[in-house]
Amino acid sequence: MKRLFLWLPLAVFVAFLVTVAIGLRKPADTEIRSKMIGKAMPDFALEPAVASHPPLAAAHLRAGKPRLVNVFASWCVPCKAEAPQLMALKRRGVPIDGVAIRDRSEDVARFLAEWGDPFERIGADPASRVQFALGSSGVPETFVVDGKGVIRHQHIGDIRPENVAAIMAAYEAAK
């Protein structure tokens, strides 16, 4: 019994080493999931981001049908990369609204002209307030909101071609 006790510090140390080794081998997970999934869309009413599109308010997101809310910015490079995927979703009949983070209307207009325009409404979020209210921690992020205005799904980062099916499924599930 006493001999067993003598081995205890070494056992604790080995357990510590194993924990550290596992932690080091695991790829770092730096994604911060929003805790707002399953909760009602926070209330907001934004100014229009560009003259060509009507502005976005939370009320538009509880109009009976699910919608996608894409948090983007003209200065964000991955937002350009996901533009074709948003256009593909639009072609499949998914209504998409945008929240433009810290952006100027002329920059948004140029962004839409260059990379495509999947949006019905775009709200301007010049001080990232709606982004904070959504629990979003970067651009781009895409939220699926059901007809009652409940956030159902969050996609973090740019939508790659292989992500379209999952977003489409989340959209169908929100119906």
């Binding site: 810290r102 990232s128 904070f132 921690s137």
Partner: peptide
């Protein structure tokens, strides 16, 4: 700070940290 994980928003110069300080 959400974009520079490991810094507080008081220490970061990221736009988002600035907006969070303003908030």
């Amino acid at each position: 700070c959400l974009v520079c994980q490991g810094q507080s928003i008081a220490d970061s110069d990221a736009d988002m940290a600035g907006d969070m300080r303003a908030l």
